[in-house]
Design a binder for these strands. Structure first.
Lengths: 220, 220
DNA sequence: TAAATAAGTTAGACGAGCCTAACAAATCAT
DNA sequence: ATGATTTGTTAGGCTCGTCTAACTTATTTA
């Protein structure tokens, strides 16, 4: 059985592997920063995880999850996202509040709990941020998603996920009354600065920055 | 903020104080046994809790929660029993499965979570074993309850709680189809061995031992 | 390509929570 | 009330996850 801490290292590694598209390795400093820990500490733990055959690791080399490590990490991510969904859907937590509590809940050990929770929630495929919830067998539901910034003038799309999950962005979305499923029409694109005018649901026209348009995933 | 371990010591102390009716002190060995730890370890931790003013403790003396310690312990108990209720009512866990998982869930830190959970469950006053759930302010709902063994021949009563929460007893109750609320009629009492014949709901007459009758709380 | 910089490791230390072995205090029983 | 037994404490040591400081390897850049 993995300790709370070991689980966090695996999860961090999985996250970094998603983040660094196509090159799923991570570095010691990167890991340490992500976990709020000093690089020396990460080195120690990585050695330990290597002993347990959860990561592939050589001195001064890149870090990679083994298949066993990845499996465990996916299970933690699964729990995290199911709990987020629970908090959002059932307990009325807001978009930006769910993460912190789910960070704790994801470490509860009980296969039965996870499975029952999933059932209770109606086998959701995506969490409140639109991120896919791994299935018990490790499968990850896929979703075609493109950035809002790729939508052409005049086109209509629908919000499916957020790319940035920072509190400040999520609260901004809430203020704009944007949630998963909201329809957005791109009225005008400004070449000068990449900003765009959009219409959210039936609200009034509004201008959003390029940064904004590159933080929101939509489908056509 | 208390560590996971500190919380467990406080909870154990609270439980022992309930258990040892009218003399709410506990001993070091008792504590240690309850926590599955050696007495030496308990001594160390008690010193630490004393420093934090959570327990009253003197060398070779009895151990007692301070009012601050009791408050914290009640909060943990509250969480434990709310989670048990959640698992039983919403996730379909059986009577004897809830405890183990609730032992983990009780340590999740989030006032909002606890309060929202309570609301989600409809402000329950008693958990699946019939034990009272402390309110946010520390109040404990009271319930008149007497042992089944105190019921006279011919009287009818209703199950309100279990005194023994061991798996083997809970599973026996399940087999007998006894849950909180089940009506029981005492048909005959046998002076010889304290056993009694009872009728559960509309089932057939059945004999139960004195030990059984002293493990079940009912109200008239 | 060699010096400067960045990234990663090692060594030694510390607190938390646990242990065993030896000892001290309190209680019980004759 | 004193000796035996139970109960509780102390001392010293262990592992886990963390740290700092010093060092080594890899990478970048002039």
């Amino acid at each position: 059985m993995l300790s709370y801490t070991e689980e966090n290292y695996l999860k961090a590694l999985l996250k970094l592997s998603f983040q660094n598209e196509d090159k799923p390795e991570a570095g010691t400093n990167e890991m340490a920063a992500h976990l709020g820990v000093k690089p020396a500490t990460a080195t120690d733990m990585l050695k330990k995880l290597k002993e347990k055959d959860l990561v592939n690791y050589k001195k001064y080399g890149k870090i990679l999850l083994t298949s066993s490590g990845k499996q465990q990490a996916l299970e933690i991510l699964r729990k995290h996202r199911l709990w987020e969904t629970f908090l959002y859907k059932k307990l009325d937590f807001s978009w930006d509040e769910v993460h912190e509590v789910a960070e704790q809940l994801e470490h509860i050990q009980s296969t039965k709990l996870v499975d029952k929770l999933e059932e209770f929630l109606g086998f959701p495929e995506f969490d409140p941020h639109g991120d896919p919830i791994p299935k018990a067998n490790g499968e990850i539901p896929m979703l075609e998603k493109i950035l809002l910034s790729e939508i052409k003038e005049g086109e209509v799309c629908q919000v499916v996920a957020v790319k940035d999950t920072s509190t400040v962005f999520l609260q901004y979305l809430e203020k704009l009354q944007i949630t998963i499923g909201s329809p957005i029409k791109v009225l005008e694109r400004v070449d000068f600065d990449g900003s765009m005018s959009i219409q959210i649901s039936n609200q009034e026209e509004r201008n959003v920055s390029m940064k904004f348009a590159e933080s929101l995933f939509v489908k056509r």
